[in-house]
Computed example of a mutant assay.
Amino acid sequence: MDERRTLRGIRFSLVALMLGLVISGITAFPLRLELGFASSVLHDSPLVAWFPDAVAWVDRVADALVDVDSRYPFISYGTDWLAFAHLVIAVVFIGPLVDPVRNIWVIQFGVIACVGIVPLALIAGSIRGIPLGWQLIDISFGVLGAIPAVIAWRLTRRLERLRAEPAVAATIAA
């Protein structure tokens, strides 16, 4: 792979990761509306018969959001910050888009953060009474995020080697 093609692969992977973060961030703002919509869609589909426990869980969460929002709207401020954090983390990946070799630490941070989702979901999910199936869905976001991050990391290491080859050849020639 030549340098330009490697750089294109890095950028494609990083943009995919950034889009995932932005979508996750934006969709964390209107949780109450989204869960209400999801509940109505699930009840109008065959999924209500196939996965009654999952539909009941979505209903429970939707009801809780309505209740909390009506009595304690400031609690939703926490998910606003969660949404904002996703957007900020996406912005951090602009550095590796511009210069991946210099900013490889951001890509490594992204991989570590994705891996960290697994114990967080399992530990906090168990403590908070989140069903295992939902914890696995949360874990899948870490796995899906890790894929483009690991690809970008590997390609960045390759780019680093490609850029070092001419310097090594020049040193040997001198």
Rank of each mutant, 00 (worst) to 15 (best):
V92Q: 09
R161F: 05
V68Q: 06
Q135D: 12
L144R: 06
L17S: 03
S126M: 09
V58D: 03
G110L: 10
R60A: 15
R102W: 03
A173D: 14
I137P: 01
P119C: 02
I123P: 00
R71N: 08
P166E: 05
R32H: 06
P46N: 10
A54G: 07
T79P: 02
A124H: 10
F141T: 07
R128D: 11
F29D: 04
F29Q: 05
D67S: 12
L122Y: 06
T79Q: 11
A62H: 01
I127N: 09
A124V: 11
A152Q: 08
I89F: 15
D80W: 13
Q135R: 14
S24L: 12
I10F: 10
V15N: 03
M1K: 06
L162Q: 14
G9M: 09
I137R: 11
H86Q: 13
A85P: 02
P46L: 08
W134P: 01
I130W: 02
L159F: 05
L136H: 10
L35D: 02
L47W: 14
W134K: 02
A173I: 01
I151K: 08
A90Y: 04
Q108Y: 11
W153S: 05
L21A: 06
G133I: 04
I139D: 08
I117L: 15
S126Q: 13
T6G: 04
A152W: 04
R11H: 11
I75D: 10
V118L: 14
A173G: 06
W81N: 03
A83E: 07
S76Y: 08
I75Y: 14
L162C: 08
G116E: 02
W50G: 04
S140P: 06
Q108P: 00
L35P: 00
D69H: 11
D53Q: 15
G78N: 05
R154C: 09
S24F: 10
A64L: 14
P73N: 08
T79H: 12
T171L: 15
V168W: 05
I112C: 06
I139F: 05
V41I: 15
A164F: 09
H43F: 11
I127Y: 13
V66N: 09
V41A: 14
A90I: 06
A83L: 07
